[in-house]
């Protein structure tokens, strides 16, 4: 497969994952606005067939995105040559995140595993297995974030996620061929704002519980 073909797969899978995160964030925010509404969403998704199809699809997207990221990173490492520069400067205008997408991706995926253990394992998996849930969705969230350590871990993770997404989003458009000198800065700006909003919605939740628990 050509270099551009592999990057196209990264763009499409990455774009789809950004859309998923958008819906995920919009649903999550209800846990602090109205726990009842959040529980209703959990109920609606649960282990119904459409939620399961979505979960399998998402897993496939993540696996594809991850595999191609490894292939591209290894090829790029080899292409750099055996000798490294003794002195190298980051030219101005080059985002830090754009140079560290793989490392940021590793941080993100590492935390996804933790996140699945925290929630998916206790919620959807138990429903699939036909077990009774220990508590409601909102209670799971409140329970986990009653530990300040988890609040802070999740907040660090979300910052890493934002760095990954703000480069990934405009980069995906670029790879799919949106060529225009005027639109490069606009796309970068839109990506920063859009992914900023998505990550901020997520970020509000551990921050809210951290503050609530500190006051209480």
């Amino acid at each position: 497969m050509s270099s551009i073909g592999k990057k196209t797969i990264q763009s499409i899978t990455g774009g789809a994952l950004i859309l998923f995160l958008t819906f995920h964030a919009l649903m999550n925010i209800f846990v602090i606005i109205s726990p009842e509404a959040y529980d209703a969403i959990c109920e609606f998704l649960g282990a119904n067939w459409y939620a399961l199809v979505g979960t399998v699809g998402l897993a496939a997207l993540v696996v594809l995105h991850f595999i191609f990221a490894i292939v591209l990173t290894v090829q790029n490492y080899i292409a750099r040559g055996s000798e490294r520069y003794a002195v190298s400067a980051r030219p101005k205008g080059v985002e830090w995140s754009s140079r560290n997408m793989f490392v940021l991706g590793l941080v993100v995926i590492g935390f996804v595993v933790l996140h699945l253990l925290n929630f998916w394992y206790k919620m959807q998996l138990q429903e699939i297995l036909g077990n009774e849930l220990e508590m409601s969705g909102a209670e799971f969230v409140q329970d986990l974030f009653s530990h300040p350590v988890y609040c802070i871990l999740y907040m660090i993770w979300l910052v890493a996620l934002w760095f990954h997404l703000q480069h990934g989003m405009w980069s995906a458009f670029h790879t799919l061929g949106w060529n225009n000198n005027k639109w490069i800065p606009r796309l970068k700006c839109i990506s920063n704002i859009y992914t900023g909003i998505v990550c901020a919605l997520f970020f509000c939740i551990p921050l809210y519980y951290l503050i609530i628990n500190l006051i209480a």
């Binding site: 050509s2 270099s3 551009i4 592999k6 990057k7 591209l72 090829q75 790029n76 080899i78 292409a79 750099r80 980051r90 030219p91 101005k92 205008g93 080059v94 985002e95 754009s98 140079r99 997408m101 480069h167 405009w170 980069s171 670029h174 790879t175």
Partner: peptide, 20 residues
Amino acid sequence: VAKMDELGFGNCTNTGACEA
């Protein structure tokens, strides 16, 4: 593009260092 890949050049990740 096929020749570029064959000769062992890497994959662009849109860092923009080239332009700079």
